[in-house]
Amino acid sequence: MSVAAAQESVIVSTAALTQRFGSTVAIDALDVRIRPGITGLVGANGAGKTTLLSALLGLRPPTSGSATVLGLDPRSQGAALRAKVGFAPERDLLPDEMRAVDFVRHLSQVRGLPRSEARTRASDSLWLVGLGEERTRTLGTMSTGQRQRVKLAQAIASDPELVLLDEPTSGLDPTQRSEMLTLIGEISNEYSVSVVLSSHLLEEVERVCDYIVALDAGRLIADGPIEELVGDGDGITLELVDIAEPAGTVDVVESTLRRGGIEVERVGTTLRLGGVGPDELSDRARDAVADAGARIRRLEARRRTLADLFEASAV
């Protein structure tokens, strides 16, 4: 892809975006580029995810730096931008007396759809998120899972180009969480709606997202396609059985591998090996184990996870 094409495909970019609240730095000189697809905005509570979403929506002018969303400046073109962006906040606060279909219809109208179109699309969106039969129920009678779906429905009802979802699985049990993630993936893939999904649950981001933006205390610690950040690593994990006869086999294997130029990180009876290719690592580990008369409990290619990114940044 040419540089120009790559730039065109960027839907969100920030340049040294900084947001301070008094002496607290919520976002610290953030440079991110988000492409079409599902992007996971991941970080612990207080990492600056919601603040970043607010800045991208133009709800809060940044202290310094700039952002571009769908080619628009959130600061000066916020209203036009928000007409093209759907948003579902984290807070589980909805007007309890309102029927789900009225709630979605009304917000679609506020986002600019004509009344008749808003009514139709409200109903269609609720069907899409699995609440077609429940659409005339009042929000106050719905479960947390259903209310999260209603929030998703209102975010997509006006056919936005981009949807920002702030902790969409908050308060859901594992089954509901799985269903919600499936739904988000389907909406993005089938209807070409880009999604930025904030979450502090790394496994759900890994499961559904194409790209990752990882924040820690307002700083960017990693961003890029998920296959580059997680997946097969450049080493293997060798877990041995601690046996009495012959004794000290784990020590022997470790020292043999070290002498052979292998990078070894030992935790108890587990050796994390690196420094050469995975095939050679496996062969030499197998030979060292055989020579020492040790027994293997587990031998596997090491997999990088999002948790590794955060651990690495903390070091």
Binding site: Q109, G112, L113, P114, S158, D159
Partner: peptide, 24 residues
């Protein structure tokens, strides 16, 4: 048919948003 479709029709902008809130 999920019925959900892309929308390419007119959007009423800020005026429409205000009318919707006033009416509601």
């Amino acid at each position: 048919d999920h019925r959900y479709r892309p929308y390419s029709g007119a959007r009423h902008g800020l005026g429409g948003a205000m009318r919707a809130v006033i009416g509601s």
